[in-house]
Amino acid sequence: MKKTFPWHIVIFLTPALIIYSMFSALPLLDTLRLGFYTTNDAGAHTFAGLSNYYTILFDSDWSAAFWNAMLNNVKFFAIHMLLQNPIGLLLATLFSLKGLRWARTYRTLIFLPTLLSVVIIGFIWQLILSPLWGVGEKLMEFVGMADFFAPWLGQQSTALITLALISVWQYIGIPMMLIYAALLAVPEEVLEAAYVEGASAWRIFWQIKLPLILPTLGLVTILTFVANFNAFDLIYSVKGALAGPNYSTDLLGTFFYRTFFGYQAQVGSPTMGAAVATLMFLVILLGVGVYFYAIQRKLTRYAL
């Protein structure tokens, strides 16, 4: 029988392909192209090769700010990896236990901040942690810890950590729900067989559940990496484009914003901004590539 061309597949895929090309692929390609140009005072573009990238990475006027933002991004990501994902794993494991009362209510309350606007989250936490009118000091005084209160958002040594903890609090529901869904997919017959053999709940988790959800943990890790190296909105809503104090909370996202759009005394440059965006893209691409090459291959081989 003669095979016909699957035109129905082309018809259904064409609208999505057009939308993706217009709003994602083409802007990305144009950004990559724009990073190889410079802009004069008249706004005309001149091809400059790799000069923008050399300036950002090695020129003393630019490199210090770029590497500071890069280091802050690494710290921001590390805090999420050390706190958000392990706590999400712990919560998902607890909620997957049978017989836990009010489990649905707890899951909803923990996931609820994820649905709120980052601007609202930032404003609320600014009010809570304000040393002038915030309730944070009062709450710590209530539990006898008033001496430990400090203007954490106003100190260079603690501002980035505080914002990272706020971000962890807001988005911890995402890894929790992803891991929770993976735990629910673990075959019941496997768990029942382990119980019959006399395995403890702790041993069942480490030797059965955890190996089976490793692909999901890998997915959570890569999503955390991409999200944190694209982070911008929380820093901007709380600290503005200058990411104070003294750029101690500056991330690649806020550095890109100042470079592309300009801010206060800094004049914006679309070509330099495109170069910064390209470097951000390469960092994320490198991280994703390392994950798929070094980790995902091992997980796939383990599953087989």
Rank of each mutant, 00 (worst) to 15 (best):
F123G: 10
Y302A: 15
Y302L: 11
A201G: 06
S51L: 06
P15C: 05
M22P: 03
Y263I: 04
S63L: 01
A277E: 07
K2S: 15
G262D: 04
R104L: 06
I174T: 12
L160A: 10
G122I: 00
S24G: 04
R104I: 03
L210F: 00
Y37V: 04
Q207N: 12
Y195H: 12
V186K: 03
G154H: 02
V276C: 04
V10T: 08
F260Q: 11
M280G: 09
Q84R: 14
G253A: 06
W133G: 15
L285T: 15
W206H: 07
L127S: 12
L132R: 09
L219R: 10
Q264S: 13
R104D: 15
G43W: 00
F58V: 05
A277G: 10
L109D: 13
L251H: 06
L94N: 11
G289T: 15
Q170Y: 02
M81K: 07
Y195C: 11
T38E: 11
L183H: 02
G198I: 01
T14M: 04
I179Q: 06
K138R: 11
A182D: 05
L299M: 06
G134K: 03
W202C: 11
I18E: 06
A185T: 03
P175T: 09
T221I: 03
Q155V: 04
R258Q: 12
M1N: 13
Y54H: 13
F255L: 13
M70D: 10
Y247A: 14
Y302M: 14
Y293M: 13
V276N: 05
K298Y: 03
I18M: 04
I179W: 00
L97P: 07
R107I: 05
I18G: 06
A48K: 01
T105P: 03
Q296V: 09
V290N: 10
Y54R: 15
F149V: 11
L34I: 04
I161A: 14
I110C: 06
I79C: 09
R33N: 15
L57S: 08
F36P: 08
A150N: 14
L132C: 05
L279D: 09
P245N: 14
A275R: 01
L97M: 11
Y171H: 11
M22C: 09
